[in-house]
């Protein structure tokens, strides 16, 4: 885990809009994470739009989604305009770097998932530390963590999304705290997984 280059949050404490961009690989639960954040915003009366793309992307391809809150209405996040990048996979963190600016907060899972070209031995997976250094050099703050191993510690590798949500909420940069997020996890995720999800969220929350 590394924490580097913390810059002042872009617009200080008077932010009135938040653009959070999510990227990951099909099957990692990015869409559930965006939905939980959206429901938490609704619970706290914060204006919110959640943008998803369904269909083709789910077959092991890249899945991108977004949560925008506050005054902003546009469901799409332009290149250079993400306040937060939630990257569920390190290669995808670097691919989505175009969404960030020198002010962005990036939370990145360092556990790689090989694309087909890599797993078939055609090309090499880029060095993770190197990629994280590149990301770190272009953004305000990077929190890189092995969310997969934390999720495993909570009881399921599938809870990477909950770990990353926990880490995001610890940064206290959104217009609501951890409680509404935990409430939504309790009411909106599948019963047998609620305990694991809450534990994973908490393990992510411990990461600073």
């Amino acid at each position: 885990m590394e924490v580097e280059g913390w810059a002042v949050w872009p617009r200080g404490s008077c932010m009135d809009s938040w653009r959070i961009f999510f990227t990951g690989v099909g099957g990692q639960g990015t869409l559930l994470a965006t939905r939980i954040l959206g429901e938490a915003a609704l619970l706290t009366d914060v204006q919110v739009v959640v943008s998803e793309i369904h269909g083709m992307a789910q077959r092991g391809g890249v899945v991108e989604s977004a949560v925008v809150m506050g005054k902003v209405l546009s469901p799409v996040v332009s290149d250079g305009e993400a306040d937060v990048l939630m990257a569920f996979e390190p290669l995808e963190a670097l691919r989505a770097l175009r969404k960030c600016s020198a002010h962005s907060l990036v939370i990145a899972n360092t556990s790689p998932i090989s694309p087909f070209a890599v797993s078939s031995g055609k090309v090499q997976y880029p060095d993770v530390s190197e990629m994280m250094r590149t990301v770190s050099g272009h953004v305000g703050k990077l929190i890189a963590l092995n969310a997969r191993s934390l999720a495993r510690g909570a009881g399921s590798e599938l809870a990477v999304n909950m770990v990353l949500l926990g880490t995001l909420m610890r940064q206290e940069r959104l217009p609501f705290g951890r409680e509404p997020v935990e409430t939504v996890i309790k009411t909106r995720t599948r019963k047998p997984f609620v305990e694991i999800n809450l534990e994973a969220f908490d393990l992510g929350f411990q990461v600073v």
Binding site: V62, L91, P115
Partner: peptide, 15 residues
């Protein structure tokens, strides 16, 4: 906003 072109990365097409 200025956008980093970014390095060439392995593609991740759906499979």
């Amino acid at each position: 906003p200025k956008v980093e072109p970014g390095p060439e990365l392995p593609q991740r097409p759906p499979n």
